[in-house]
Write a protein that binds this DNA or RNA. Structure first.
Lengths: 498, 498
DNA sequence: AGATTCTCACCTAGGTGGAAATGT
DNA sequence: ACATTTCCACCTAGGTGAGAATCT
């Protein structure tokens, strides 16, 4: 708890008691203003949720025709409201097919979105721009493999209300009205655009790099939102008409656009987190917030040394072959590995039995592998995160070996969007390759399931630095502590004494 | 010198004596095999060099028709040879116009390329893939603004020889023959492709993220080369025919391709640097090798403390508004600032008069500005590096205010290629914005030339860690040293005592 | 003996929430 | 009172050459 903001800590007591599902104002239908669309129907797709709004195909009215006042396009405060069902029900909702043979978009990571949604998702907005967490990731189906498409995202207001968080009751309350009508929502075109339907469908399309800002004068292309308002992202699939140059596309064309939104991606914009449960979940799941996870905070040097000690003897954890889902802050075994642990957890969460963030182990099942020297031929490639790696339940046929028959071409990676798939987990080339449909041979040729890459146990930098520079200053090599800290402490060659 | 490899140090003595221009085997003309092309003519374009080879326009023979044996396409060992002239002469060479109204490609950073070329450029290749340094960056002119183009790069053998570096004479000698004819060179398509001529021409097109590998089984899309061979990169401008889907382009189309190469970008592949002068120049200029620059290496804690002391009193250097050219490892003032220094240099290079890497100050002219609190409205945006920022002599009209009249659209940035311009210097959004042609308001509204963003003086991590964690361990705040180290040591609020 | 691979310390670059400071 | 901004420690991610180990 010490990692949470003192304000939230002081005022949001009720939020801490049990599951206390935040009494949210409302959860809306996906139905937009003048566009055809209907609420998502539950289906069998395990972890995806989609609500569909069609522009262009089912309704020839173009977005751009209404762009004079697009700010309220998504405002659906007067539309029929639907109370959110439980997480389990939402999890099985499925994207409705939009027109015969039309594109189908499935939200990836809906588990995580739903965990936030239950509490009441908040997104920080800053003047400089802040990424979303979770970010919007989708899978698209039913595209024409040979057509070119743009895929884009925007964020529309859920209503015309301003909200205020009441700490005493852990609730968001309406605090006033807002006129969004003069604000043109910015369209974020996915950097891979344009791209063939085949390529889009082969990858997870990620909007990781979208940034939100409250700076109305923003010139960096970020999505401009107002703080303390409710919004929902939308994903647009835009057929590329070769007659027009859409490379500078700034608003949706009048035709050939299919729009999708997902109720669980609704969020409230804030400049500082209001609900402490949100803070906690963000810290637990966002890899970049790892520094705020409980066990590691504010420790002294001695604590650090103790925690860094290789308690399990001369072995280091081998996580590399596991697909790390950065959106979850956790990793999963690529095949049939059993056992337990996560690089997200501090070392002492295992044998020392110290407390670990509540969410940090919940989905983890990693083996404690003994360190093995990586074979020369496969040491360098980093983990290969298969599209849908956070979806263990992905239908196996989705990515058959035949998908890998294409030769890799050197299409420059549009990174580090990683073509939407890996978010700085796999190296750029790996994802580019994936885009091209060719897996590393290590995967094509049945990789040993629990092997072989040494995971760099996060050496607390203070320890490394302290020991290293005490050494430097004194001219004396403090071999034992340095040994404790190195990734391969028993390796005779690593103590470079200066 | 202590940073250099012991082998090079031991054997390459001759290379250390004065300028000793490496007696290179040969420097070749740009003329390729069966394609029209001619050598670059010197011109008035200050720092760019280009040799041009045309495929498609002037010669309808397509690359792909000869792709059965493309490995030797670029082999020009039998072509007329031209001794390289001095750096100054090369600097003024200009890209020849390829056909009436045809594209013109200019190499950016030819200064740096030439410095390497004089010595004999080496590029490390590894199994995992290694970036090039310098990387290929070009500016394209004379495109049809309204047409779509792909821009791609490949690397072709200069000859069919294998080389060996003779340390005693600091020379590369032929060590055997090689048959490249069976190897299809991989085509790296710039990630921004396809793009309108207008957009291509507005940016510097960078191939920063290209990686070279010696792994013939590479599946990550890197360019596969053989070690100890000579190569030269080529840049291709490919007209996009909307009738064909080039999104999976793997080899050059038969028509509509213009190919350019630059003599000074020739290099020899190595797995470890052979010529110590190359090592030194790489370390001096590549920001990622900063850790190997002389002054900072292998210092004790006391040295570090001394060096970190703000000798010029309570002021911190303000570098942020200066365009940092990562390819040069140096920065330049955006306007008329005088004075001197570079973030590449350790602080003590100024008042202490300690030795500094020879190249690290040579082009620098930075003012010592007193720290000013950044105005709230402009603090967040990072420095705005204008295309051609490493070209002070860029014709001013190249980027007039009228270029900035476009509205920024939210085209997702294809980063961190930074659309070729900034290489992780400016934030992605800034470069995206730049792409869209709209500068930050701070620039539109006449920014004070020498102001205002605090540059994070590189606090030696050992010092920060030592003081921080001694504090943590003892519970005592070591205010003075911490004050010395913090970015704003005189600010009362930054000493967070834990 | 020479070429290659591997691990490392040390960088760049930038994404987190906390907490103090600052608006409003 | 509360919203916002700023700065910071602490992360992730990954690009360097050095140097030892290993391969050929």
């Amino acid at each position: 708890m010490q990692g949470l903001s003192s304000r939230a800590h002081a005022f949001s007591v009720e939020a801490l008691v049990g599951k206390t599902p935040c009494k949210r104002i409302k959860a809306e239908d996906c139905k937009g203003e003048r566009v055809a669309g209907s609420r998502a129907d539950p289906g069998e797709q395990e972890t995806t949720t989609a609500a569909c709004t069609v522009i262009g195909e089912a309704d020839e009215l173009g977005y751009s025709r209404r762009a004079c006042c697009p700010g309220v396009l998504g405002a659906i405060s007067d539309a029929p409201k639907v109370e959110l069902s439980t997480r389990e029900e939402l999890k099985t909702a499925e994207a409705e097919k939009c027109g015969a043979g039309g594109a189908r978009v499935e939200l990836q990571g809906s588990d995580l979105w739903n965990r936030f949604h239950e509490i009441g998702t908040e997104m920080i907005i800053t003047k400089a721009g802040r990424r979303m967490f979770p970010s919007v990731r989708v899978k698209v189906r039913n595209l024409d493999p040979f057509r070119q498409y743009y895929i884009a995202m925007d964020i529309t207001p859920v209503d015309a209300k301003r909200y205020r968080y009441v700490y005493h009751s852990s609730q968001w309350m309406v605090a006033g009205n807002t006129d969004h009508s003069c604000i043109t929502p910015r369209l974020y075109v996915h950097p891979d655009s344009p791209c063939s339907g085949e390529t889009w469908m082969r990858q997870i399309i990620s909007f990781d790099r979208v940034k939100l800002t409250n700076n109305e004068m923003d010139d960096k292309g970020h999505i401009i939102l107002q703080s303390m308002h409710k919004y929902r992202p939308r994903v647009h699939v835009i057929e590329h008409d070769p007659r027009f140059d859409l490379s500078q596309i700034q608003s949706l064309p009048a035709q050939g656009v299919r729009t999708f939104s997902f109720p669980e991606t609704e969020f409230t914009t804030v400049t500082a987190y209001q609900n402490q449960q949100i803070t906690k979940l963000k810290i637990d799941r966002n890899p970049f917030a790892k520094g705020f996870r409980d066990p590691g905070r504010n420790r002294g040097v001695l604590d650090g040394i103790l925690e860094s000690y290789p308690w399990r003897g001369p072995l280091s954890l081998d996580f590399k072959p596991f697909a790390l889902d950065p959106q979850n802050g956790s990793c999963r075994p690529p095949s049939s590995c059993g056992a337990l642990s996560s690089p997200s957890c501090s070392p002492q969460s295992f044998p020392l039995g110290l407390p670990c963030s509540d969410t940090c182990l919940h989905s983890m099942a990693l083996p404690l592998c003994y360190k093995m020297a990586p074979p020369a031929g496969v040491a360098s490639p980093r983990p290969y995160s298969v599209p849908g790696a956070d979806r263990l339940q992905e239908p196996p046929g989705v990515r058959s070996l035949s998908d890998f028959s294409l030769l890799p071409s050197l299409r420059g990676q549009k990174e580090p969007d990683c073509r939407g798939q890996c978010f700085q987990v796999s190296p750029p080339g790996v994802s580019a390759l994936r885009l091209q449909g060719l897996p590393p041979p290590a995967l094509r040729h049945a990789p040993p399931p629990c092997s072989l890459y040494s995971y760099s146990l996060p050496v607390p930098p203070h320890l490394a630095s302290v020991t290293r520079h005490l050494k430097l200053a004194s001219g004396v090599s403090l071999t034992p502590p340095d040994g404790l800290l190195s990734q391969t402490p028993w390796h005779p060659a690593i103590n470079h004494c200066l």
